[in-house]
């Protein structure tokens, strides 16, 4: 969003904007519109999940009971913490404090990678137990069809979410470098704020995924 900058005090102001206010306004609103498309993008998956869960409740509950609640819960806590560090990064960027921004961004990146690491462990577990839908799905388990449909959505939703985390981590690295170079100042913090919006959105998606995927059959016990 910010193109070549020439004078010192208007560093980071794109040529076609009148001033920083308009530029920040436009880029934040643009990001929110992008987040709307993301809401509807994940919405399609949630619609499919909700429909098949109402059609095959036992299959979904049995499959959900295989998921490791501790790892899921730990991931939720990690992601909430990363939201905090992200919000602190945006705040310090607004104050023009580049080093602090960089450090908070590094913390966020670290938490994000921890989250992805836990996902890798979980996926490994599923592959071991032949629970990945497709030709080698283990159909001897009870309610095999319902469980397979659950894992369809488990892998689709957490996979799409993990993909968004990977893209987010890539962007974080980019912003860490720019913060390290001291590019931002109290009038020009838009890009980091937008990164914050994206990251918080990805956290919100996980906030909905955790109860829907992991805590489905908890009230039936047997975990």
């Amino acid at each position: 969003m910010s193109a070549q900058s020439h004078t010192a005090e208007s560093r980071g102001l794109a040529h076609h904007f009148e001033d920083f206010n308009q530029q920040l306004d436009a880029s934040t609103f643009g990001m929110w519109l992008f987040l709307i498309t993301e809401i509807l993008f994940f919405g399609g998956l949630f619609a499919g999940y909700a429909l098949y869960r109402s059609h095959m409740p036992e299959g979904f509950q049995t499959a959900s009971s295989h998921l490791n609640i501790f790892l899921g819960g730990f991931n939720t806590v990690v992601l909430i913490a990363s939201s905090l560090t992200m919000a602190m990064a945006v705040r310090s960027c607004q104050l023009g404090d580049n080093p602090k921004t960089r450090n908070f961004l590094i913390a966020t990146l670290f938490l994000g990678l921890v989250f992805l690491g836990v996902k890798v462990i979980e996926y490994g577990e599923k592959i071991e137990h032949h629970l990945v839908p497709g030709p080698n799905f283990d159909t001897s388990i009870p309610f095999a069809q319902g469980q397979q449909m659950f894992y369809n959505f488990y892998f689709a939703m957490t996979g799409m979410h993990a993909l968004h985390m990977i893209i987010g981590s890539g962007l974080l690295i980019y912003f860490i470098v720019r913060a390290h170079q001291g590019r931002y100042h109290s009038n020009y913090f838009g890009p980091v704020e937008i990164m914050g919006l994206y990251w918080h959105f990805v956290d919100i998606v996980w906030i909905f995924l955790f109860p829907l995927l992991y805590l489905l059959g908890l009230h039936l016990g047997g975990h």
């Binding site: 095959m56 839908p133 497709g134 030709p135 369809n152 892998f155 689709a156």
Partner: peptide, 11 residues
Amino acid sequence: LQFGFFDPKLG
């Protein structure tokens, strides 16, 4: 990947 979202044989 044969994720049977819409495949009637897989529910």
